[in-house]
Design a protein around this nucleic acid. Sequence first.
DNA 1: TCAAAAGTGTTTACTATACACCCATGC
DNA 2: GCATGGGTGTATAGTAAACACTTTTGA
Lengths: 279, 279
Amino acid sequence: MAANEEMNYLEKYNIEDYDRPSVTSDIVVFSIFEDENENRRKMAEGKLSILLIRRNVHPYKDSWALPGGFLRKDETMEQCAIRELCEETGLDNARLIQIGTFSKPGRDMRGWIISNAYLAPIYGENVKVRGGDDAAEAAWFELQVEYDDNKHIYSINLSSRDRDDEVRLKAKAIVKKNSCGMDEYEVTDNDGIAFDHTEIILSAYATLRNHLESDGLAYELLPEQFTIMQLQKVHEVILDRPLLAANFRRKIISEIEETGIIEEGKAFRPAMLYRYKGL
Amino acid sequence: MAANEEMNYLEKYNIEDYDRPSVTSDIVVFSIFEDENENRRKMAEGKLSILLIRRNVHPYKDSWALPGGFLRKDETMEQCAIRELCEETGLDNARLIQIGTFSKPGRDMRGWIISNAYLAPIYGENVKVRGGDDAAEAAWFELQVEYDDNKHIYSINLSSRDRDDEVRLKAKAIVKKNSCGMDEYEVTDNDGIAFDHTEIILSAYATLRNHLESDGLAYELLPEQFTIMQLQKVHEVILDRPLLAANFRRKIISEIEETGIIEEGKAFRPAMLYRYKGL
DNA sequence: TCAAAAGTGTTTACTATACACCCATGC
DNA sequence: GCATGGGTGTATAGTAAACACTTTTGA
């Protein structure tokens, strides 16, 4: 009886009667690339970078944007993000962390479009990036974030890697608590970053820093086998401060294990390679 | 020129061409209610409770569900959640924490509907709850969550407060890591909880525990002025373990301040009332 | 007087931090 | 030899946990 009634109801129910938004995922793909090394005695420094695509369609044609795309009917939000990430990088086993929902009315001039944003830390050394259908090209940008503690202003600088013509993008944003106590970024200056992607990048950066130690994200940015110093450099680049090697070793030694393999070819004492125990 | 070209493009662009989901917010409203006190010498114990509504429309007619509703064109996702919370409780200044996106195909038999879920810890002592348009009634349910460490199974028990006929809801779920390393709940048993709301409640509970200390959520569950022991009871109920009063006091004393007012009327030494300094 | 919370003091263990020191390597 | 990272030891400071003890209240 009740089941019958329910079936009747569902048949009459037409979801088209209500206004609906388009839903997208945007992904902030992080990777760390080693600089060219001028001094053989020193370890290479790394730069935190994110993947951007240059749009070849309107709106924001020729601007740089985060990779992402529309949610399809047969997939979850995460699967959508994984699919987009895979289209862009070929990687299909990355870890994704949800950053939040971006839904401010007017954020996309094409209409009512909301975005669920994710971050994906990857080891990008061997990854070939390629643009999707609405992108002319994809490129890595070194990310530099500065924070003015007094004015609560974040400045971000992005500069392209591996391109003949260097591209530089800049933006500034003020952090505020919104009406329900969440951090929110209000962009005040923007040079070359499409949509509200500055806010998404800043949120992703904050989430990456917060989840770095508690969630083992640093290991995603390294190959499966790595030295402790490589792991330390990842932490240093993301936390943006130097760490003491002796203390760092003791702190993380319990969550990694020796591979037995010893690194060769460096102009200093060779190090053991470790792997993540996976908590 | 370029601006003109962009305008032309946007005019031709028809967002209706693409398939779109309906988007809702669901809110897990937490509150702690003191039990009746049989012993005047003891402080009342509290029970963690959540707010559910009984659906009076299909699907899941007569089942209990989380309050929530459809996203409107002129609001953000958070504003949608605030609006729904206000409709249900009259509160318009609660803190909301985003739990995540629930988007599994088929999660709602009415069609393609995805949900962004939030949690809202509130001080509910004086709040009158009422159902919205698709709800026959709203009621508080005491929430009890148990975890089997070996089998990775969560059991949740909900039992109604302040109702003539006691309602009991139950469910079990297995925790797994999904393909991108996030925790996911797979419901194995369910008695009376609508949609995938068991998963949402479990995610909310985990988020509440995780953010309790780092984010000052405990203060949302108390009136503006409170004793340290009241604050400790909130922590104890949520973390589900006893704490030592002497240590707890020292741990949180730096984030609260004295009001100067001293509690009266208890059958034991009166306590200072404090307020949250707000980090 | 008594039970229970309010509040202080103290001991012990653990963790974070800083730094001194030796080792191993390629140039 | 020497600069640099690899790795160990150790002293100090701060925090967390456990517990003993005194104070204050209403019944």
